[in-house]
């Protein structure tokens, strides 16, 4: 490949390398620690073993919580997709009074402190007498993950030439059939990307979950937090490594489906 940087190449590569290192080391460290053949977390890690992974996967607290989080995040992602898609279509395709205000409100969870959202939701749920922790958690997570779907689906819609939908209409397709046969196939990549972002965001959420969980419904981040305070072996690093792995897989899926840059843009 042609090198366009010329004399500036070395400093640029050096800086890029350092930044990559800065981003990667915190992720690689738990993986290195998790295979350490020592009863405690030590640095540098010594030996190699996978027994901490076996131990962690045998830990009921962890596996129950992992299962619960997978269910919770799947439901949250599904909810965000179901609510976010029509929202994105309305916000990008129709001009109406107050559109910018509504867009800001829909996207506000991205910038609003979710700790505060969590308290507000807790008070709200108790005041209306909603005591099912799973339902409450799903609602809370949908609230904070909808913006991701709205953004990615909007990005797909903006790139879709409206003339394509008009062509479908002139060819005899009603509004609904135009959406189903023409618009939907175009926004699927954005929808999948948005769903995955929603899933990851929900899976990782602590600030909302800590207000809404109960003893039977404990999302994984909360379990991890309590495990850290009573576990001193590299098992905790193994849990961290498993979560990094899961995120990595999902990011790769997004990259394959849409391209990360495209999915993030708006």
């Amino acid at each position: 490949m042609e090198n366009r940087l010329g004399a500036a190449a070395l400093p640029v590569y050096l800086a890029a390398g350092l930044i990559s290192l800065f981003l990667l080391v915190p992720l690689l460290l738990p993986i290195a620690l998790s295979v350490s053949d020592t009863p405690f977390v030590v640095f540098p890690p010594q030996g190699f073993t996978l027994r901490w992974y076996v131990a962690v996967l045998g830990e009921r607290d962890f596996t129950d919580s992992l299962t619960f989080s997978l269910i919770l995040s799947s439901l949250a992602a599904l909810g965000a997709m179901v609510l976010g898609t029509p929202t994105a279509i309305g916000l990008t395709r129709h001009a109406f009074p107050g559109r910018d205000l509504i867009r800001s409100l829909v996207l506000s969870p991205l910038v609003f402190p979710s700790l505060v959202t969590g308290i507000a939701l807790l008070r709200f749920f108790s005041s209306i007498g909603s005591h099912d922790a799973l339902v409450n958690l799903v609602i809370g997570h949908v609230l904070v993950t909808v913006p991701y779907v709205v953004r990615t689906v909007s990005a797909s819609l903006i790139m879709l030439d409206p003339a394509i939908e008009e062509a479908a209409r002139t060819l005899g397709a009603s509004r609904w059939r135009t959406f189903w046969h023409v618009t939907r196939p175009q926004i699927v990549p954005g929808l999948v990307a948005g769903g995955i972002f929603a899933f990851v965001t929900s899976f990782d959420n602590y600030a909302i979950s800590m207000w809404l969980f109960d003893a039977e419904n404990v999302p994984l981040p909360l379990t991890m937090f309590s495990l850290i305070s009573r576990m001193f072996d590299p098992g905790i690093a193994a849990i961290a490594s498993l979560m990094i792995l899961l995120s990595l897989v999902l990011v790769l899926v997004v990259e394959r489906v849409t391209g990360l840059q495209k999915a993030m843009s708006l």
Partner: peptide, 17 residues
């Protein structure tokens, strides 16, 4: 639109990608 039975050619063709 969809019941008018018109054939329309768009500026950028608007083919379904």
């Amino acid at each position: 639109v969809h019941r008018r039975n018109v054939g329309m050619l768009f500026q950028n063709y608007a083919l379904f990608p």
